[in-house]
């Protein structure tokens, strides 16, 4: 569960972004990128810019470009006027432990 500071406006926005990103699905597993544990960091420190630091379940994943593009498209649609930057990182390495309880529940259906 994401912790947020009630006195910090950007905390609310970060939660809103997380909710938006729940609509972006991994095409094979059909689980959203948040519950897959692919999103590492959301940076709102720059004005009119959303910077997402994320990973993929494997490098050279055939769906990798599609997932990155989905994250960018989703946030650009939700926040017109904002520049969305998606940084792909490989550290720390994604493992199955990154999948949230909700993600595991959906996989178990």
């Amino acid at each position: 569960m994401k912790e947020f500071d009630i006195r910090d406006q950007s905390s609310f926005k970060e939660l809103e972004i997380i909710e938006n990103l729940r609509t972006v699905l991994d095409p094979e597993l059909q689980i959203n990128v948040i519950d897959m544990g692919l999103i590492y960091h959301i940076d709102l420190s720059e004005e009119l810019r959303i910077r997402i630091e994320m990973t993929l379940s494997s490098s050279h994943c055939p769906m990798g470009e599609a997932i990155l593009q989905s994250v960018k498209n989703c946030l650009e649609e939700a926040y017109p006027g904002y520049e969305v930057v998606v940084d792909l990182v490989w550290e720390p390495n994604w493992t199955y432990e990154n999948i949230t309880e909700e993600g595991r529940r959906q996989l178990g259906r």
């Binding site: 972006v24 095409p27 769906m63 599609a66 593009q69 498209n73």
Partner: peptide, 21 residues
Amino acid sequence: PFIVWVRKYEHLSGKRKIPMP
């Protein structure tokens, strides 16, 4: 299905509702 999906829908993914592979 993934090969075709990436070609046809990758750029639209996240913009609107699209079919899955």
